[in-house]
Design a binder for these strands. Structure first.
Lengths: 110, 110
DNA sequence: TGATCATATGTCGAATCTGACATATAATGT
DNA sequence: ACATTATATGTCAGATTCGACATATGATCA
């Protein structure tokens, strides 16, 4: 991973290795972020396919439009729990989740 | 799902449908809990295979033995984030996660 | 242009989750 | 029986994430 990319992630609020390491993500941290981005992209894709607005999805999961926007943006203040609950609320099955996890990453950060 | 099983989950601290519905999990809630149990079982399996104690794993993820125990027990105060971070710390790949998600459920609750 | 709808971003008090710790309960040896 | 080691369970102050709200930025129309 390139430093530029890491700085962009950091700028978006990510904390690595207990904040002290600014550069140098561990494989584990990288996987974690990667996973989140996949789920975020999967959520957006699924929502769009269902022709729902972020507000409509928010209502369905008893959250708010802003939080849905953050989910899809990969905002670090959003937990995997919320992300996954939302996917489930959109009718995703375990198989669907597995597919999303294994999916090709769509876009880079930044 | 049987009522008995639901009561057992409730007794362990699960809140359903905003606390008010005591019985009657939605498909989504059921999937969510099911997913957590799979990850919990996957974590334990992986840890054991690596011959690590809960304390050792805790150290690796900068958590505590008690929290690892809770993770593996499917305690509702443990987030998917922590569960998944721990799996990643044990070297699980995206493929491994997908496999766990699709895995056969090992044991029932209670 | 201005109006309307969808999405993005920032903030905040309240709710939830965290690691740490104490302590209880196996399990396994001697 | 008594240690020792691993795991389970409960609690709590501090940290993080929550939904809600305000507001900014796009996007699409007339």
């Amino acid at each position: 991973m390139r430093d530029l990319k890491k700085r962009r992630l950091a700028a978006r609020g990510w904390k690595f290795g207990g904040t002290k390491e600014f550069l140098g993500l561990t494989a584990e941290e990288e996987s974690y972020i990667d996973l989140r981005l996949r789920l975020a992209a999967g959520l957006r894709k699924r929502r769009i396919r269902r022709r729902l607005t972020q507000a409509a999805l928010a209502k369905a999961v008893r959250s708010s439009q802003s939080r849905v926007a953050k989910m899809e943006a990969g905002d670090p203040t959003v937990t995997l729990d919320l992300l996954i609950r939302s996917l489930l609320a959109l009718g995703a099955s375990r198989h669907d989740l597995a597919k999303i996890i294994l999916s090709r990453r769509t876009a880079a950060v930044g």
